[in-house]
């Protein structure tokens, strides 16, 4: 019985990894858009932008993409969206059921996998295990890119790993880092803008506000998803994802206006 797999040596595998990565990475050192955060809002924004032919890079600090989209509330892997979020599910080919009027439920793993695949199919480049460190600022403090480093390097004490980060340029940057609002907070550290903090109040309709406030918060910087809630001090919302998907879409529309 013959061998199943083609014969390749270790060096060929290494060359394929390094060469493939570097060729693509070089292209994305200068992008139209850098999206920081690969959760549902970031993936959705990336998908929409790449579909329009924009060079889009998603920077994700974890090994995995999708953020909290894999799992709904209480570690149960059913995700819910409220109308009109199900229209996005339909568009992405994610099977769902109606739980009650205006509320739809889908399998988290299926939904998340479809969203990631859809973003990749559209042409989004993903840089995972990469952490956002700082913003690139241009004249009048306009945001012009992101400073990034490998997540493991960033996680180690400075005394052990004094490894400088690198800078990536982009016409627009999108903060899709969830509750952390890492990009906006970095701008706050620099005294360029001020976040309002995360509201502790729970109101039924706060999902609407997240979509409404998605937009350019500073020249060159668009905020979306739960980062919007932190930036504007919006009330908390339940474990539903419609606002993340629609906020991602709205962020893409706002970015397209600026490109």
């Amino acid at each position: 019985m013959g061998e199943i797999f083609a014969k390749v040596s270790e060096k060929d595998i290494t060359r394929a990894i390094v060469g493939g990565f570097i060729r693509e990475f070089e292209k994305f050192v200068e992008s139209d858009v850098i999206i920081v955060g690969g959760g549902p809002a970031g993936l959705m924004a990336g998908r929409e932008l790449a579909t329009k032919g924009k060079r889009t890079l998603i920077v994700e600090r974890n090994n995995y993409l999708g953020g909290g989209f894999w799992i709904g509330g209480f570690l149960m892997n059913k995700i819910t969206v409220r109308h009109p979020g199900e229209e996005v599910l339909k568009e992405l080919g994610i099977p769902f059921e109606q739980a009650r009027e205006g509320l739809f439920v889908a399998d988290g793993p299926h939904a998340c996998a479809r969203l990631i695949a859809s973003a990749c199919d559209a042409g989004v480049k993903i840089l995972n295990m990469t952490v956002f460190e700082d913003v690139v600022l241009r004249e009048n403090n306009r945001v012009g890119g992101a400073v990034v480093n490998w997540t493991p390097v960033e996680a180690l004490p400075r005394q052990i790993t004094c490894v400088d980060p690198i800078a990536l340029e982009a016409t627009m940057v999108v903060d899709a880092t969830g509750h952390d609002a890492s990009v906006v907070r970095k701008m706050e550290e620099r005294g360029v803008l001020k976040t309002k903090g995360f509201g502790g109040m729970w109101v039924e309709r706060s999902e609407d506000l997240v979509v409404e406030y998605t937009g350019e918060v500073h020249p060159g910087l668009v905020v979306c998803g739960m980062a919007t809630a932190t930036t504007f001090g919006l009330p908390r919302m339940g474990p539903t994802f419609g606002a993340m998907l629609l906020s991602g879409r709205r962020a893409a529309e706002e970015v397209l206006k600026k490109l």
Binding site: L193, K194, G197, G199, G200, M201, V217, T231, F232, L234
Partner: peptide
């Protein structure tokens, strides 16, 4: 006039243009 922090009497001073 928007309440942004449940535990602070301060309101939304200096609202963003988006707001």
């Amino acid at each position: 006039l928007r309440v942004i922090n449940l535990d602070s009497p301060a309101l939304n001073e200096n609202p963003f243009p988006i707001e």
